[in-house]
Amino acid sequence: MTNNNRENIYRIKSHSNLSQETVEKSLTDYVYSDKKQWNWFIKLFLLSLGVGFTTAGIVFFFAYNWADLHKFAKLGLVEALLVGTTVSIFIPAFSSTTKNMILTGASVLVGVLFAVFGQIYQTGANAYDFFMGWSVFITLWVVVSNFPPLWLIYIILINTTLYLYSEQVAYYWEERTVFILHFCLNLVFLIETVLLQRIRKEIHIPTWFTNTIALMTAFFATIGIIIELFDYYENSSYILFLITFLVYAFGVYYAINQKSIFYLAVIAFSSIIIFSAMLVRMWTEIGMFFFVCIFIAGSVTAVIKGLLSLHKTWTNE
């Protein structure tokens, strides 16, 4: 924990006559990124920019309306690129990170292929089936690579497909239904990730990935309930309330078991926002805003007090 190191150096410095040279040396030794970390960083930086720019270049190339190019030539070109990129994964000299990044680039090319198809046959650039086709045809790569950034792209694609489907085909769906579906969809991914982490211990799932999905799930629950409160107050179905309540209750149980401050903080904050929205909706007097201000400050403080004592207990165990 480099932050602890920095804090310790600062503390010693403020209570001693430690020389500037020694502070500099200790920061370099224990806090700043070292040579190995810089090598890793530069590699990742250059590779991300390289793959990102090249893929973006290809996307822009096909976005340009080639009137003179025959449709088979257009599709053939993207196909050739796709095959070429995918085959390059078998080069043994590449590390698994490099291969995964190339596969991510190839997954974007699948989207380009569908876009070119859409351009030729005039299916529209934001048709839901474009995103659905894209999602379906990269599924295998996503599963095989198990590369978190690719999984995230995949989850975003499926969410986009669902959103566009509700806009273009199932336009009669109520807004709250769409939010319930988004919430359930992301919840399934979250549960899957959590279960996978427990069952297959050899698979390393980074915390940022599970945290991002947890945040997306809580976002849809919170906004969905606020919409339910303000747009469907008279004929509320309570479905989202009920699911959210059950999920949050289980989430708290899981977080305490797993000693996760993050999940507890997210659930608590989402609940506070939902409750505040409920207060504002039920009592529309001006004074309610004042009360909500006090409520938020008070409840967040109480939650922080609880989280701090839990954190202290867990770190001392």
Binding site: L46, L47, G50, V51, F53, G57, F60, F61
Partner: peptide, 15 residues
């Protein structure tokens, strides 16, 4: 697209 593609290749070469 040409600018992006060439830039991308340059970064990959640097990598």
């Amino acid at each position: 697209s040409i600018i992006l593609f060439v830039t991308g290749l340059l970064f990959l070469t640097a990598y």
